[in-house]
Amino acid sequence: MNASTYVEPSEPQAEIPLLGGDVTEGVVRVGDTVRRSVNPNSPLVHALLRHLEAAGFAGAPRFLGIDAAGREVLTFVHGEVAGRPRPAWLADEGRLASVGRLVRAYHDAAAGFVVPEGVRPGLGVSTPPGLPPAPPHPAELVGHMDYTPDNIVFRDGEAVALIDFDLAKPVTRVDEVCNAMLYWAPLGDPADADPPLREVDVPRRCRMLADAYAMSGTDRSRLVEVAVLRTRRAWFTMKQAAEEQGGGWARMWDEGVGDVIKRREAWLDRTGAAIDAALTAP
């Protein structure tokens, strides 16, 4: 037994499948714990979760160890997430603002985290040929980078916790806010938006999230540039993940996520100026 071995309680408990999410399969709840399969990015995630616990950040599950089946054991976070079909409250502006505050609180807690020596972030997917350049800004912290409605826990209408840190990696604050806007503004062709978000004022929602996060003027001016560059890269990285990882990645690609990304890029070309104006207005 090593320091990361999880010791089960004496009384056996049933495994209850947990639904939701796009990629990770076989997630179950056992009592007040969640069991998930490990992946190449797990060493980074476990170190990050331990840092967040030491920092006193209450908005993330605690890593408890590895069980006898080789699965990571996390504390179960009580609350409400937006499953499918998406609830009408997805468009609620109060909830939107609380997402911005939660992301900022996470960043404040994660700012001091250093990737441990010998740990390589990422899921082990190779660099696809023809990958467009990344935004030209150095990483500032290890971000969550998967702020889907499935991964944010609410209580009493307030975003209180993040789950599923599998895509955590070194990024900029703009990358992170852009990722949150991708799902919550949302950034993309309205035809591809979740039904409650198809007729919302996207530039207004971008501004609200940025204000709630207390985004700097410099970062606001970079947001649209980063959104465009990240979208161009997303087509290549999603295709590569589908080919190399299979599973949920392949399913999303087969269901047309590549076309969704291409429509998002065209939509950003049409709408980027309005988003920039909303973000940078006095």
Rank of each mutant, 00 (worst) to 15 (best):
Y106H: 13
L102N: 01
L49Q: 00
V73S: 04
G83P: 06
F76K: 07
A54W: 11
G94F: 11
P61H: 07
L49G: 10
H51C: 10
L74K: 07
G59L: 03
A82H: 05
D92M: 07
G70S: 09
R62L: 13
V81R: 14
E80Q: 12
P61M: 08
A82P: 01
A91M: 12
L96G: 00
F76V: 06
P61E: 08
A88F: 01
G100C: 07
P85G: 15
E72L: 06
V73Y: 03
L90I: 15
Y106K: 01
V103N: 03
R86C: 05
A88L: 15
Y106R: 00
R62C: 09
R50M: 12
G79K: 09
A60C: 06
L49Y: 11
A55C: 05
R50T: 09
A54R: 15
T75S: 13
L74A: 06
P85C: 15
F57S: 12
L49C: 09
A55M: 06
H51M: 13
R84M: 12
R101W: 14
L96T: 06
E93N: 07
S98Q: 03
V81A: 14
A105C: 11
V99R: 09
L52E: 01
A47C: 06
P87S: 12
L48G: 02
L48C: 02
E72C: 08
G79A: 08
A105N: 10
A105V: 03
P61T: 14
V103S: 07
A82M: 14
V81M: 10
W89G: 14
I66A: 00
H51N: 13
G65H: 00
V45A: 07
L64N: 00
L102I: 01
A47V: 05
